[in-house]
Design a protein around this nucleic acid. Structure first.
Lengths: 99, 99
DNA sequence: TTGGAATATCGGAAAAAGTCGATATATCTT
DNA sequence: AAGATATATCGACTTTTTCCGATATTCCAA
């Protein structure tokens, strides 16, 4: 069930924080050297801000991605993650109609 | 954090089912003898439909209540639970603005 | 083509959630 | 007051989630 995966993905403080940071990357992260923020934010920056290990943050990002809440783009050795705003709109509507 | 409690409450298949049943009690439950559906549905009916033990369902309902998603009314020996629709509207908006 | 940097994946220990049966509490009936 | 019924709480066990360190993979640069 897809709903369930979304709610599980949102059931963790750090993952909620990450989503909120990605809402305004310019404000939440220092300048990125290798790409503009349009592509998203790379794992390393998110990891530093989260204060958890690299493996944990990588895992968290993939949980968010499997839930459809973020999208990733690989550019060279970096993977950039950004929010999938459409998913949040859908979620908002889904709560009004399906739940 | 309140958001987190809401998402945790929604991170369980049975609890999602209960919320959906409570959306249309007349359709989801046999007639209640001791009260109309305005007050909600009693724990026993929900338990039968969920197919889990009484203790588990009671616990689930209190998780939903702590998250603010349902409200309870005690009438005699029965506790009736119903949805708190305002909470779902708030949640829907919260997803659009806060998350 | 080798070394280094960024990310992903794997295996495991600890904490949390799911679920049960037994028991406690509250209320109704007689 | 006693027994019956509905619900809540407790203690235990199992499953899932959290989070780590170690290792694998991918890609870049010299």
């Amino acid at each position: 069930m897809k709903q369930l995966d979304i709610f599980k993905a949102l059931s963790n403080k750090t993952r909620l924080d990450i989503l909120s940071w990605l809402k305004d990357p310019e404000a939440s992260f220092p300048e990125q050297i290798h790409a503009g923020f349009e592509v998203g934010v790379c794992v390393g920056e998110i990891q530093k801000k989260a204060g958890l290990t690299q493996s944990t943050v990588s895992e968290y990002l993939s949980i968010l991605q499997r839930a459809g809440l973020v999208e990733s783009t690989r550019v060279g050795q970096w993977t950039y993650y950004k929010r999938n705003e459409a998913a949040f709109e859908e979620l908002s509507k889904m709560i009004q109609s399906d739940i």
